[in-house]
Simulated scan of single mutants.
Amino acid sequence: MTRTRNPADPLLTLRHAVAEASRTLARDGLVTRTQGNVSARQDQLVAITPGGASLGELRAGQVTIVDLDGKPVAGRLEPSSELPLHLALYRDHEIGAVVHTHSPAATAVACVVEGELPCIHYEMALLGGSVRVAPYRRFGSAELAEVASAALRDRRAALLANHGAIAVGATLEEAAATARMLEWLCQVFLLASAAGSPRALDAQALAEVRSEFARRGYVS
């Protein structure tokens, strides 16, 4: 359903932000065609990319608005099939945006690594530490939403086994930046694995990194 809006309409602003983030992620190669989805929350409403739309060409008018129960508020297209996943993350975590990708390196790692991607680089401290790999569950299912939410406990990113990756943040910018970092980390892991056995940083090293990041104001 649709309604008349003016340029100051906060829902229109939110829809524009989701559409722009989708196009940017497509240009960066993190989402392709219809593979992936993006959402942002404002109070009790969520703007999410529609199912079946080309993310690289997405426009604000195609973005759907729903409430936290998934009830349609605005938009003429069906929301992404991963709406249950996005809504679960907003209910379970204090976040403002979700980026779900099928980016090549992250998806490849999600197809081979079990349990977690170890801390092979100190910048993983910005994500909360090692990146958990949620067990495989069918796309669009409540079961996938459940295991993904658990994998994101105290983390900003997770991998979904044989599926892709999920990144969250207080804003769309933060969530997108986290998705880019995760893709880079997975590329590094794949290259390191081809050369040998990647070394993981120990708990003391990560604690020192977190302390230094906090001193420099990189994290709160």
Rank of each mutant, 00 (worst) to 15 (best):
R180F: 07
S22H: 04
Y122L: 14
G75D: 04
T4H: 11
R180A: 06
L127C: 08
T107Q: 04
Q187T: 10
G70E: 07
A203E: 08
G129Y: 07
M181H: 07
G128V: 08
S80L: 03
S80C: 03
T24A: 14
P50S: 04
L201W: 13
T49A: 02
E78L: 05
P118H: 15
Y90H: 02
S211L: 11
A148F: 00
V219Y: 14
A125T: 15
Q62F: 05
A194F: 00
E143M: 12
P135R: 10
Q187E: 13
I48M: 00
A97G: 03
V73H: 03
E174Y: 08
E146Q: 09
T171Q: 12
A47L: 07
A161L: 07
Q35L: 14
A97Q: 03
A214N: 09
G217C: 12
I48D: 00
E146D: 15
C119E: 07
Q187V: 15
A179F: 01
E20F: 08
M1E: 13
L85N: 01
S193A: 11
S193Y: 05
R15L: 04
E183C: 09
S220A: 12
A175E: 09
E174A: 08
L172I: 02
A158Y: 05
T171I: 14
A179P: 03
A161V: 10
E114D: 15
G217R: 13
A205P: 10
Q42N: 14
R156K: 13
S149C: 09
T32L: 10
A165H: 06
Q44C: 03
R132T: 10
R3P: 14
G29T: 05
A148E: 01
L30H: 03
T101L: 08
E57P: 10
H100N: 01
A179S: 04
R215P: 11
A165T: 09
L159Q: 09
A110V: 07
R156L: 12
Y218G: 13
D69A: 07
D69Q: 14
G75P: 10
V209W: 11
T34W: 00
L30A: 04
Q187D: 08
E116H: 07
R5T: 15
E208W: 09
R91K: 11
V188Q: 12
S22F: 08
R15V: 04
A40D: 03
L152G: 03
R59L: 13
A214D: 15
A47R: 01
T4M: 13
A142M: 10
Q204G: 05
P198S: 11
A47M: 05
G51N: 00
T2I: 11
R33V: 14
A21L: 03
L206M: 06
R199I: 07
G61V: 13
E183K: 09
R91L: 00
A148I: 01
V113D: 06
L11V: 02
A151N: 05
S141I: 09
L160C: 12
V147Q: 06
V66W: 02
E183G: 06
N6W: 13
M181K: 12
L14S: 03
R15E: 01
S130W: 04
